[in-house]
Design a protein around this nucleic acid. Structure first.
Length: 170
DNA sequence: TCTCCGATTCACT
DNA sequence: GTGAATCGGAGAA
């Protein structure tokens, strides 16, 4: 299982390394399913205009200032939950968005498949009863691309190649 | 309180 | 390619 040290690094290191890792989800009915992460995006601190934390510390962004490995879940467009993992040490607001897993291409689709909702927000991925991250030593070939849906952040930030994609699984 | 809009997805034209 | 669905966060008033 991935430990807190894995997340206690710069998001630009953690985000690409999460690609290829396995999400193990234990559902409420007791069943267990595994999903490989195929795409992630990095959101890097208060200076990153695409990052929610560019607004500074608010009740919502507070989560990103917490311990590395904290789960950050929020609702977008009134309909879809987004799944993120907080990186870097306390008081440095960074997070990795899980954008796709094998079989579910899209952040809103995968949270529906994984049954992720607000009850996961501000929990930790390290030692969690319902969701875990596992490294099966798969070595993905990764390509980068600009992040999606962040044009509002301006060209400088919208063009950062901070999306990480498994070249062979997408 | 009120208004604007988003780290999306899907149905239609 | 365009627009609707749907609602809470953030900022203005």
């Amino acid at each position: 299982m991935l430990d807190q040290n894995f997340f206690d690094r710069d998001v630009l290191k953690v985000a690409p390394e999460l690609v290829g890792k396995i999400i193990i989800r234990k559902f409420d009915d007791g069943s267990i399913r595994r999903f490989r992460i195929t795409q992630t995006e990095a959101y890097r601190g208060e200076n990153d205009k695409a990052c929610h934390a560019s607004k500074g510390r608010t009740p919502r962004t507070e989560i990103m200032y917490h311990q590395p490995g904290t789960i950050y879940v929020y609702l977008i467009y009134g309909m879809y939950w987004m799944l993120n993992f907080v990186t870097e040490r306390v008081n440095i607001p960074q997070a990795v968005l899980i954008r796709a897993i094998e079989g579910y291409d899209g952040p809103g689709k995968l949270t529906k498949a994984l049954q992720i909702d607000q009850t996961f927000n501000n929990q930790t991925i390290v030692d969690n009863q319902r969701i875990k991250l596992f490294d099966d030593l798969y070595q993905p070939e990764i390509i980068t691309a600009p992040r999606i849906g962040v044009d509002y952040a301006g060209k400088i930030w919208a063009k950062k190649p901070w999306r990480f994609i498994d070249k062979n699984l997408s």
